[in-house]
Amino acid sequence: MSSKNKIRLKPYINGSIMLTRLPEISLRPVRIEDCHIIWEWANNFDIRQASFNENLIDWETHIKWFKNKLRDPHCYYWIGLNSDKKSVGQIRFDLDPKTHEAVVSISISPQFQGRKYGQVLLEEASDILFKKTSAVCIKAFVKLKNQRSAHVFKKAGFHEFSKAIINGCPSFIYMKSKQ
């Protein structure tokens, strides 16, 4: 599962066009050995601030949660690897088998943030989820103040579906439907 070296055209009002090269990503299923790095990413200050629960996650709680996710048949969980095979982030979809709606959770390693890996990881993993499962749509919950994530979801083809208060936080709900 790998993205090709994509080039995007970005048109400007004045008629000029900028070529934007997106990073290459491959996906592999999350494994038990990923537990520690995912815990480190989850406890990164910026990632905690973007989360609906900003408290640090203790190791024992994380291990229990992580093992449950690995056993969950409705959880689709991948690590994104760059062209050097370094882990750049994680993406998880929790699919409701009754509604066929999935909820996405994504985080990018702090050392790879700001390089468009989030956009490519979202695009590639969403495509795979739609092709290999019964998912008809994907929902993402993003705090209103988290403009960086909102931008990534829009770039990855999600649209603003509605606004809501989630855990006391004004939030966007983004959605992407199966094509």
Rank of each mutant, 00 (worst) to 15 (best):
K4E: 14
N5R: 09
N5T: 05
K6Q: 14
L9V: 04
L9S: 13
Y12D: 12
N14R: 01
G15I: 01
S16D: 14
M18H: 13
L19N: 09
R21K: 10
R21N: 12
L22A: 11
P23W: 08
P23V: 05
S26I: 00
L27R: 06
I32F: 10
E33W: 00
D34K: 00
C35A: 12
C35M: 09
E40L: 06
W41F: 14
N43K: 03
N44W: 09
F45G: 05
D46W: 03
I47A: 15
I47P: 03
I47H: 09
R48A: 12
A50P: 04
S51D: 13
S51N: 15
N55E: 15
L56S: 15
I57S: 07
W59L: 07
W59V: 04
E60H: 13
E60L: 05
T61L: 08
H62N: 09
F66H: 03
K69Q: 15
L70R: 00
L70I: 01
L70N: 03
P73H: 08
Y76D: 05
Y76V: 02
Y76E: 05
W78S: 00
I79G: 07
G80V: 01
G80A: 15
N82Q: 03
S83A: 11
S83G: 02
K85H: 14
K86A: 14
K86E: 15
S87Q: 13
I91A: 08
R92V: 02
F93Y: 15
L95Q: 06
D96M: 02
P97S: 11
P97Y: 10
E101G: 08
V104M: 03
S105C: 01
S105W: 00
S105M: 01
I106V: 14
S109F: 02
P110I: 00
Q111G: 06
Q111I: 05
Q113K: 12
R115F: 11
Y117I: 03
G118P: 02
Q119A: 10
V120I: 11
L121I: 08
L121S: 12
A125V: 00
S126V: 06
S126P: 05
F130C: 07
F130S: 08
K131E: 15
K132Y: 07
S134Q: 14
A135S: 13
V136N: 15
V136T: 15
I138R: 05
I138V: 12
A140F: 04
A140Y: 07
K143A: 10
K145W: 04
N146A: 10
Q147E: 14
R148E: 10
A150V: 02
A150R: 06
H151D: 11
H151G: 05
H151Q: 11
V152R: 02
F153A: 06
F153S: 03
K155N: 13
A156K: 03
F158L: 06
F158S: 02
E160T: 05
F161S: 14
K163Q: 15
I165E: 13
I166A: 05
N167I: 00
G168D: 14
S171C: 06
S171R: 06
S171T: 09
F172G: 08
I173D: 11
I173V: 13
K176N: 02
K176P: 00
S177N: 10
S177Y: 08
Q179K: 09
